[in-house]
Write a protein that binds this DNA or RNA. Sequence first.
DNA 1: AAGAGTTTGTGAACGCAAGCACAAACTCGA
DNA 2: TCGAGTTTGTGCTTGCGTTCACAAACTCTT
Lengths: 238, 238
Amino acid sequence: MTESTPAPGEPRVPGAREIPEATVARLPVYLRALTALADAGTATCSSEELASSTGVNSAKLRKDLSYLGSYGTRGVGYDVAYLRYQIARQIGVTQDWPVVIVGIGNLGHALANYSGFRSRGFRVVALLDADPDRQDEVVAGVDVRPFRDLDRIVREHGVAIGVIATPAVAAQNVADRMVTAGITSILNFAPAVLAVPDGVDVRKVDLSIELQILAYHEQRKTGAATDPDPLAVQGGVA
Amino acid sequence: MTESTPAPGEPRVPGAREIPEATVARLPVYLRALTALADAGTATCSSEELASSTGVNSAKLRKDLSYLGSYGTRGVGYDVAYLRYQIARQIGVTQDWPVVIVGIGNLGHALANYSGFRSRGFRVVALLDADPDRQDEVVAGVDVRPFRDLDRIVREHGVAIGVIATPAVAAQNVADRMVTAGITSILNFAPAVLAVPDGVDVRKVDLSIELQILAYHEQRKTGAATDPDPLAVQGGVA
DNA sequence: AAGAGTTTGTGAACGCAAGCACAAACTCGA
DNA sequence: TCGAGTTTGTGCTTGCGTTCACAAACTCTT
């Protein structure tokens, strides 16, 4: 992904270790498991327990946590509340993150209503849509605003993160406008490759790609491969 | 992920090369780009062109394609239609994949309406929901059926792939029922870790995890880390 | 206080993936 | 036919991520 170059030679933050990308991707999973444990009233847990409830290897879990610091106690395990706070702080979900969502189709609706956002510090400050007919609606308690208001909304609320839930053809234009408005992190649900300047992070979630990966493995399981006959190309794929 | 062990010693399929997981994950991206090129009337393209339109390195693209076979022509490039067919065949999207979706919330609606499924061989044969009030609805031209019909529907349509779009608490039960019914690939949108027997593949898409990864990098960019004071644990994270 | 049992943190080995760089194989013009 | 230009396919190097395995550090019982 578009990693902001850490200025060759000098570390990004003096005391902060560099956390590997693979570890960063797992921290939210640990956070969720710790929250569940805390809600269940559990005060302490071992790396083995936490690992099995998150579906990872316990050695990997311990190595992941070691990048954050030494927050466990040998012979005992981890304090659930303490570890949870430390992970939340590292990820950044102890802060408030104002977010805008662009594109109010089915997916935009689903995202606006998704409770998992609010509970982790993400606050949807506006839903934007280019269609003027939609701008009287209120979805999930948030006003639908015209897309042209993007700049003002970003400025007023200090929005750093934008979500694109538009059709593919509109995605690049939306991304450009977001970047211009000052957004530096984009979560893209549109099936399109976005070009953005350095310093802007883009993560992509593609629903059909995940299904296709499953189909690949499923095909291998059942051994049902299509005829590799090159002549079949004439017909093409539907 | 739960990779079906390829029987130590003997290759899974005699003639088939083993395609690396990282490559499999990119094949759908190439497929989409090739479809766009074909729609635009392009007959031939180089690895450089295809790479830039999919956002990957051209060397990586060529290496990925080399796992499928030698489908390019040196000095010329790749035949768009031919390569597209070969990739589609390898992934398995030249076949028809009947799919069931369980959980008709906002996300279920979005998935049922998503055109990217049908155009790639995925056919939603049923939407299942435990709520009896919803079973008169028709969403995206597909009947909403009671969850208890799962077994029959899977049997009748030969469903191999199931999608879980329920709340987290229901997910494991749904997965168990899916496995019992004969489903061997699950796409899970619920924020829960699923336990499934060997031979069943699970892929997870977690909307809030992606946002949290963005937040982590965003926090690093702005240098706005929260006070690491251990005493703050008393307050905990909201 | 000492030994047995438990669990963390991490050095080291291993394996997969990314990228470089170049020979091989093609086209095209003279 | 030959040489210049283009593009693929791939061996090799490098780096990252995973896993193993064990010393260090803790608790608990006697």
